[in-house]
């Protein structure tokens, strides 16, 4: 019986990019490119089984061992701190976590800063590292609208090109950190499927560092 390495990929553009990286490294699975609604694809010859999941869920699948390895953004890892190994920086899906506000916003240091974000932990860690008291407002989408409507003073969000910010008259004021896609592994799977996981890590790692 083939022992498969189960790989969770984030649905969407990043996942497709990452898949082609894995395929180039020798872990292809041609059925994945067929147009259909299947979610699980396997290639017995290479011993890999891919599946598409919601990007923010990849870490959950890996931490609980439903996937042996997976690819997800550093933002998710920082936000949820899952118990996993972070084996590689894939240097793709690059963007940054940043603070943005309305162009005309002037900070009032006499009261807590109102921060709207999807990334509650990252925002809290950042502001406590600089000693600023904040009032956190957790939102799940369309974060940019919060400062426009006066719901918050600033937002903490992912910025890729900055177009969305510009179109909404917002400016980036501070960069919190750079974000990119990471290869993560379940700690127990790493022990029991070590050879295969190391093989994947090394081949993909080599490709990534050659592209630099």
């Amino acid at each position: 019986m083939t022992q498969y390495v189960n790989i969770a990929l984030p649905k969407g553009r990043l996942g497709e990019k990452v898949y082609s990286l894995f395929a180039e490294a020798g872990f292809e699975c041609p059925s994945i490119l067929e147009e259909n609604r299947k979610l699980i694809f396997e290639n017995p010859g290479r011993g890999v089984r891919y599946f598409w999941v919601k990007p923010s869920d990849v870490a959950v699948y890996v931490e609980r061992g439903a996937a042996d390895i997976g690819v997800c953004g550093k933002d998710i890892l920082l936000e949820s701190s899952p118990e996993v190994y972070e084996l590689l920086d894939l240097k793709t899906g690059k963007c940054r976590m940043a603070v943005a506000s309305r162009k005309d916003f002037r900070e009032d240091h006499r009261r807590p800063l109102r921060v709207a974000t999807k990334f509650v932990n990252i925002a809290q860690d950042y502001y406590s590292s600089i000693g600023r008291e904040i009032d956190i407002i957790e939102l799940n989408g369309s974060i940019e609208i919060a400062p426009i409507l006066g719901l918050s003073d600033v937002i903490v969000d992912i910025v890729e090109t900055g177009t969305t910010l510009r179109e909404n008259d917002l400016v980036e004021t501070e960069k919190i950190m750079d974000i990119s896609a990471r290869l993560i592994s379940n700690k127990s799977s790493y022990e029991f499927k070590k050879e295969k996981i190391e093989q994947i890590t090394n081949s993909v790692g080599l490709l990534v560092s050659n592209r630099k």
């Binding site: 061992g65 127990s188 799977s189 029991f192």
Partner: peptide, 25 residues
Amino acid sequence: FSVVNDMNYYNGTVFKGYVAGIPSG
């Protein structure tokens, strides 16, 4: 060497055990 317990309490040999089918140590 990725087995790291808190160095304020531990020293020398540290270890962690895994069982196939159980996702964490």
